[in-house]
Amino acid sequence: MPFTAHDLRYHPEQSFPVLYAYLQRNAQRFLGALQYDAIEVDTVVGHVIEQLVRLGLFGGGDTTAETVFDRMTDAQFYAFLSRMVHNKAIDRQRKRRLRVQPTAELEYFQGDEGDESPLDEAVEPVWGAAPFSTPEEITVHLASQLELRDLLKHCIVVLRAAPLQLNAVVQELRDIGADELLEDIFVELNMEPPAATQNPHLSQHKDHAHRKLRHCLQQKSTNLTVIVALRLIECMASQKKECQISTEQLVGDDLSFDDVKIGLRELAAEGLLDWQEEETVHLTASQAKRLTRFYREE
């Protein structure tokens, strides 16, 4: 019997043998000379099965959210599994080749494969390299996109509760010439740029600040705060001076009502608006200006 992503999610016990058989056949196909090594075959299959569990699909039932796998056609899902097997098989072959091998074993690998070595197929795919293929590429994107930099600004401002840590970060940003970012932060915090000082515990303050920033930047609530702020700014564009916006207006395809409430709570906690779970958000002209200045203006 063929299986589907739905089967793996809701009927894992019945579909596991068929899934295993499908993955095993693909593993044997892509492992080349290693196809006769049962451990290698199962290592490849086991890797894909682990991914299916870790991604919340296999045995996930209704306890995990639906993802792209649940929206794929069966052919697309099989293609996904097959490609996962293919990539892991190539990885295993590379690892085996890298190990110091006796001459006889090298001949075993190079002898009978002819032109069909799967390693030869490991070229860049037709759809091009993945975006964000390196951490460097990601951070350049984060640093150069206005809306993504808003998250950083937000998290640096959160550091105001620990002035020594905030100063340590300000000093670092000043050293790298991030003047525009600093200017926004000083305006938001209504503070003068601190004088450069030699704090004997600077390194410690930096470490603590970095840890807090790392945590803040990866928080879902941080992201929602910025998204809700940007959506408020969009809504305000059509109104003059003081404005009133229904919370329903802020909800969108990618932003649920609960998400909106999380973002609004954070903005209220930061003093950027007055909101206490009402159905309508009231923004004064000064609040609107402050919100726009911090999250939109460059």
Partner: peptide
Amino acid sequence: NINQFGGMPAPRPSEVKLAQWLQNIL
């Protein structure tokens, strides 16, 4: 097959430095 992230303009030097700093803290 073409995504929007391949054709980004080259980052400014200050952005590159900020990116390096971000990489360090992240």
